[in-house]
Design a protein around this nucleic acid. Sequence first.
DNA 1: TTATTTATACCTGTTTTCAGGTATTTTTGC
DNA 2: GCAAAAATACCTGAAAACAGGTATAAATAA
Lengths: 211, 211
Amino acid sequence: MLINPATLAIVDDHPIVLEGLQKLLTNVKSIQITGCFTSGLAFMSFLKENKVDVLLLDITLPDANGIELCREVKALSPDTHVLALSNHSERSMILQMIQNGATGYLLKNISSEELVACIQEALSGMITFSKGAKEIMARPSISELKGIPQLTKREKEILHLIADGKTTPDIAQQLNLSPLTVETHRKNLIQKFQVRNVAALIKIASQQGLL
Amino acid sequence: MLINPATLAIVDDHPIVLEGLQKLLTNVKSIQITGCFTSGLAFMSFLKENKVDVLLLDITLPDANGIELCREVKALSPDTHVLALSNHSERSMILQMIQNGATGYLLKNISSEELVACIQEALSGMITFSKGAKEIMARPSISELKGIPQLTKREKEILHLIADGKTTPDIAQQLNLSPLTVETHRKNLIQKFQVRNVAALIKIASQQGLL
DNA sequence: TTATTTATACCTGTTTTCAGGTATTTTTGC
DNA sequence: GCAAAAATACCTGAAAACAGGTATAAATAA
């Protein structure tokens, strides 16, 4: 099974973490650490020249935020598996990282065996979470799920059309309704979600998975 | 380890699937099937009277869509672990289910051993995926990640404020800018994302994890 | 240092949205 | 069958957004 060891890079602004991870992973034969960086910019220029199979990425960085960096990495090098390595234990943060192309999410309290196992799983093309992250993901906050207004069929329909950039006259024509009717539905949507305008409406609807 | 077997319910509009799952799970001592339903409505009324530890939920249903049903289930009974069981293999679909409170996602080509393992993992309070689902999750579509316009610091700032429901005058005051300047940024945002109005802008920005 | 991008600001006119209502006809649930 | 909810439609006036420009200072990259 020893063809070529997988290349691994680490981005973390704490040198101590960098040191620790290196020590943990040096005696793993199947993994070769090819670079350690304390800034996103430095890593990106490295990535342009070198192949990286796995990236361990801290989310909080001095120059850029990890979520955007993750997306940039995947856009430049889609085959690089990005594993977020973070203290952030909010469910929404984990979801955002995954949405932006991360192959996994590891909490920093991870054990060394678990770390290696997760890297292996990522290398084999699967999403992976540390135990702690799995537990967080299984516990959706009730507030996220409750307090979601109940929409009628028509309201959902119109919500989607609004989100697609359609204006009231557009929607009225498409659904063969009076523009005044569409306005009423729009107003009810804004009222039900307790927001001020469509911008906030679309944001909340999108975050709650209604679009 | 045999205190009380976990209660499990199944919602799927194909009776054959219902039969098959029942057969697969009857000889598992730690799991007790307490109900099988072919419609979301029927299950919801059952859930009001009975405790359900795990729900195997098909996404495509005649009366409601599984994503919304999942949210309703979690709102009514937060301790019920919902495992999506589906043929849908789109990454976005999986993410939506998770965002709406699902504890896991299983593709229907799952093996019986894997199914039991996933149910056990869900019962122990962790998110879980079938092998196939893990692979899909690890492969973000490139189109999702590329083609994202590059925004300046100011534009990001204003994008967030717009998403929060702030109007141009609001934003101008908050950032000590001329409303006309804010209008320009707003216009540039709409142009960069190639959309018609803020509604579409916020939708796309939200889906790309920029909010 | 020069060229480009970014951030700033302005102008005009049209369209759309939003706030504040009222009101009738269908559905749907009990 | 009756009550409630949903879908329909209307009205007015103010506020905001959008389309279509132009233009200049400051910062940044080549």
